[in-house]
């Protein structure tokens, strides 16, 4: 009986928390307890999962996912040479030009690695706070990669766009999400082998478009 009462109370609090009905102090306490208990965290996650599933079924706020995988364009030899020479040069120039602009006021430093050391992806730009909406995404070459899978997410890692390319730069084309409207997002590049299978999953790199005041 006591356990039932306790469960009911926990559910009431979870419902009130998600409905935004708790005071700031109550919310802090709830979150503190949730971060101290796998059971409470699991309960909250399950509730969020089901709420979002209902929204997706209703077609409201559905998770945006690109469907189908684009075919990998067959590279032409001369084009590949161009990729190996011109793109790293362009990337170096972009680094020199863009990086100073990405370290705006109040920006946090590089995100720490929350687990063991890794070195995938290596995105170059855009990253951090940017003043102009990026129309291209640039990353370092992976010598083992036959092609790259580019993914663009919204700020909650909902997939917006997915494309496969042999280059180390991707320009968003017609039908792609408008980054200026997106305002902030996350992108990632993963290396693929000759069969299109995953070699290395890249780091998710957030960016935020913040136009400079005139």
């Amino acid at each position: 009986m006591n356990e039932q009462t306790s469960n009911d109370g926990r559910r009431e609090r979870t419902a009130a928390y998600l409905a935004g009905e708790l005071s700031n102090e109550e919310r802090r306490r709830f979150e503190d307890k949730t971060l101290s208990s796998d059971d409470l965290a699991s309960e909250l996650y399950s509730e969020i999962n089901l709420v979002e599933s209902f929204r997706e079924i209703a077609g409201d706020g559905k998770r945006s996912r690109s469907v189908g995988r684009p075919t990998i364009p067959r590279p032409v030899r001369s084009k590949r040479r161009l990729v190996h020479i011109a793109v790293p040069v362009a990337a170096a120039i972009l680094v020199a030009v863009l990086l100073p602009r990405l370290t705006g006021d109040g920006e946090r430093g590089e995100a720490p690695v929350f687990r063991g050391h890794r070195n995938p992806g290596q995105p170059i730009a855009p990253a951090g706070i940017i003043e102009n909406p990026p129309d291209s995404f640039v990353w370092f070459a992976d010598p083992n990669a036959h092609s790259y899978q580019f993914e663009l997410f919204d700020s909650k890692m909902g997939l917006l766009h997915e494309e496969t390319t042999v280059d180390t730069m991707l320009v968003l084309g017609e039908g792609s999400p408008k980054v200026a409207e997106l305002r902030q997002g996350v992108w990632r590049v993963s290396s693929l082998d000759e069969n299109g299978d995953l070699l290395t999953r890249g780091e998710a790199t957030p960016f935020r478009y913040s136009p400079a005041e005139p």
Binding site: I48, E52, F153, G158
Partner: peptide, 22 residues
Amino acid sequence: ETVDGYPPVAWCFQVLRNVIGN
């Protein structure tokens, strides 16, 4: 108090949900 309309920890869990979905 909220991030994208969600309480902070709920927002973090939503991020995880989307990453798992991906």
